[in-house]
Design a protein around this nucleic acid. Structure first.
Lengths: 253, 253
DNA sequence: ATTGACACTAACGCAACGTCAGCGTTTACG
DNA sequence: CGTAAACGCTGACGTTGCGTTAGTGTCAAT
């Protein structure tokens, strides 16, 4: 028979935890002294180990109680269901990390973008700067000739070409806005989003899915973008982000 | 100026959430009616979007408050630190899933092991059954000739060979127990664990790291094993599990 | 004037303990 | 044997991000 502190040390848990398990009926000590001190038997210790094992796996105490209380409880199914939960959790976290990475990428190059101009109304110089943020990444993936290529692309535009691009951009934006009510995953919205990416690729730089997603995040994370986009329509920025996310998810495979 | 419900619908959050954000000072409405109704401005909506963006990433509200309150707050560092947290979380979950998988594997073959005997005192028949649980998995990885090979291995032992094996096993167990005080990652313990795996591989079946780890989990998850092992020394089973986990972690790369 | 629809403010609930606070018990030491 | 240290006990609040009543007030329409 061991007292709380001993058990706590043996099992590597806190005394409070044992109190807790006692209170919620997960593990009652085998006996009590006259003074009301908890005394745990060897058998209690074994059960505690089982509890800790299931806990390590991430099962909630309530489930553990079920498993231990009734031997007829379907352990296998419980564990399988739990595994699904864990897999979902993992996916969610991976998505978060993805988004975070994109945002960080964006922030890294951020210093170069101190201009008051916003993406849609960017001057050629600024467009190039924006593209430059991804230069390293792009270089890594496709070799250096591409980056130089991009450089030529943007600098070659004349002023008229430029306003042409803006017009097209506006067109796409308005097509999206016209369909906002139908949600970010609406077919027309998605088509427009695809064209938007297409435009970027053609005229600025190869807009990979990753970069594109980063752009979507940027629209919400950077208030300069947000404010500008929301001039078109309130909540346009977040809507666009969602739409781009959806687009990237769809085209992922 | 929008009332709570409108904002809730636009942003896709609950009214309660807005109340909450108001109370904790994360997002106060721009104005109040005489009756005390909350009125949100367009600017408020933008901020809300930012909040939701950071929330999606998994940042706690308190951090979000910091980021929004003071523009000089180091966003980048915060996000980087947060990313580390997420990566750790992901690792933990992956470990859980691993352990779960092992346990499930064990449970699947469980019906075949209804014998009252325990691993250490197993008859040849039972050893084969135990090994059979991993047969599919092994077959997938190394081809079928191996599985058959194992079959021959165990059935070829004479009774004397058998008791020899038991003796060796006991020896290893006692060596481990002698060093329990030094912890599961003690060098001698780890050596013994390695020999134990070696023995299994030589005499029973190729004990991959995965299978070995599964065995460790089994010692704690299946009370028949637990009880038997704890006859050697109380808490031997969980100790062995930890030691095996450590061993597998070390030999992973 | 009544009736919905909508708004407000508490305040409890959840998961799994951490962390005091206030107070009794056991043990070791002089 | 007295006393202090070490240990034990029981509340009860704090944490995180809201969900969920509960009780009550306000606004627009009939």
């Amino acid at each position: 028979m061991y007292k709380v502190k001993e058990v706590a040390e043996i099992a590597g848990v806190s005394v409070r935890t044992l109190h807790h398990y006692d209170k919620i009926g997960l593990l009652h000590p085998g006996a009590l002294t006259d003074a009301g001190y908890r005394l745990y038997s060897d058998e209690n210790l074994e059960v505690l180990q089982q509890i800790l094992f299931f806990k390590e796996i991430g099962l909630p105490l309530e489930e553990i109680k079920n498993i231990l209380d009734r031997p007829d409880f379907d352990r296998k199914k419980t564990l399988e269901v739990h595994k699904e939960l864990l897999l979902e959790k993992k996916l969610r976290i991976e998505k978060m990390i993805q988004t975070l990475d994109n945002t960080l990428q964006t922030l890294k190059g951020g210093r170069k973008m101190e201009s008051k101009e916003l993406f849609n109304g960017l001057s050629m110089k600024e467009i190039k700067e924006h593209q430059a943020k991804y230069a390293d990444e792009v270089r890594d993936k496709y070799g250096k000739e591409m980056t130089e290529n991009v450089d030529k692309k943007t600098s070659a535009y004349s002023e008229t070409d430029w306003s042409d691009i803006q017009t097209t951009t506006n067109e796409i934006y308005y097509r999206i806005i016209a369909n906002m009510a139908k949600g970010p995953d609406d077919a027309e919205v998605q088509t427009a989003v695809g064209e938007w990416r297409q435009l970027i690729t053609e005229r600025y730089y190869d807009c990979t899915l990753e970069i594109f997603r980063g752009l979507g995040d940027l629209y919400v994370a950077d208030e300069r973008f947000t404010k500008n986009l929301n001039k078109y329509h309130e909540n346009f920025a977040p809507f666009l982000q969602e739409a781009i996310h959806h687009y990237c998810d769809q085209h992922k495979n």
